[in-house]
Simulated scan of single mutants.
Amino acid sequence: MLYKNYTDLVNKLVWIIPKKSKRDNMRNILNDIVNTAYKVEYIINSNNSINNKDYIIINQCDGFAGQLGKYIFGEFIKDNYNKNVKYDISWYSISGLDIEKKEKRKFDLLNCFEDIKIEIATDEEIEIYKRLFYYDSGDFYELCKNKKRLYCHFHPYIGSFDKSYVMKKLDMHKNLYHKLKGNNLNLYNEIINHPASVAVHIRRGDIKAHGGFGAFKNNDSIYKDYIFKAIYLMIEKLKPIKPKFFFFSNDMNWVKNNIFKYLNKEVDYIYCDNDNKDAVYFDAYLMSCAKNMIFTIGAFSQTAYMFNKNKNIIVISPDNINSL
């Protein structure tokens, strides 16, 4: 019985019950029975195995920034709690859609960082750990400290880790510089050679996904006002050097129609076209090379910042724009 997925079977069985409340009650009862059987068999097999190893499974089910956050969390757990860590990447083949169900996510961690190795959990390991050791809330560091086995379903923010620790574990320049070509290579050269390059990240989906436009109160006008204010504030901050703005977005048409059309003529800018729609980590890398940055809401901007090596960088974000 162990490692068999009975979820579909339970759902099929309960559909013969016409009333929803009774159907839901029966589903819960059957799931409890199945889970109890899983636990009993797992305990028997676990105690009877001489090769049994304890480990933590981390559920990878995010875009590139989320993948990095979970990888760094896994490394932190290995370094500080001496735990074995595996990753569940099954979501990318089952669903893999963003929160708006529009963009297909790819597991890009290993495509970007070819020099790292991770252990991928098997279907059997995922099934049993989900049944027995599933956690989606609580203090995960405390859980990892006190529990031998865990299935962690949560979203650690990469910005919560020390920047030097992230850069010690991952080297974006080493992995991506030699792959630059065409428009990406031209942008890279412009960014690093300009004395006041500014990466501007505009990601519409992140704004909508974080508290209904989060700081922008579900209002496009407020969001656009923030972008314009950030650009002109950056110009003031960098005087007498005239900055050049490098725009990155998953919706460049929106940026063209709502931002570029209304910028003052003296604003010098260029934008990254759709070359990287299937390899978004190139956007993060190019942004990380800029001498200054303007953030949007979401972890992608923060991800690029974590790899930025410029010492005197000016960062403008929705959190600090009114205090600069």
Rank of each mutant, 00 (worst) to 15 (best):
F154C: 01
L150V: 00
E142Y: 04
I128W: 11
I158D: 02
I128F: 04
C144W: 04
D171N: 15
K169Y: 02
H153E: 09
D136L: 01
R149L: 12
S164H: 14
H173S: 15
R149Q: 14
H173V: 02
F133R: 12
K169G: 04
I120W: 05
I126W: 08
I120S: 13
Y151C: 07
L132D: 03
S164D: 14
R131W: 03
Y151T: 06
K163H: 05
L170Q: 09
G138Y: 07
K147Y: 05
K174F: 08
Y157D: 11
R131F: 01
L170D: 12
L132F: 01
F154R: 07
I158S: 03
I128E: 13
Y129F: 12
G159P: 10
R131S: 15
I126T: 09
D139H: 02
G159D: 13
Y165S: 09
N146F: 05
E142A: 08
S160L: 01
I120L: 10
I158Y: 15
R149W: 00
S164K: 11
D171A: 00
E125D: 13
K148T: 01
F154H: 03
I158G: 13
K163T: 07
L132S: 06
D162I: 01
D171M: 05
Y165W: 09
K147G: 00
F154M: 10
P156I: 01
F154E: 11
H153K: 15
F133I: 05
I128P: 06
Y134N: 09
S160C: 14
A121C: 09
L143Q: 14
R131L: 00
D171L: 04
E125P: 02
K148Q: 14
Y129I: 13
R149V: 02
D123S: 06
G138T: 02
K168N: 12
G159T: 08
K169A: 03
K169M: 07
L150C: 12
H155A: 10
Y151W: 08
D139Q: 09
R149D: 06
P156Y: 14
K163A: 08
L143S: 07
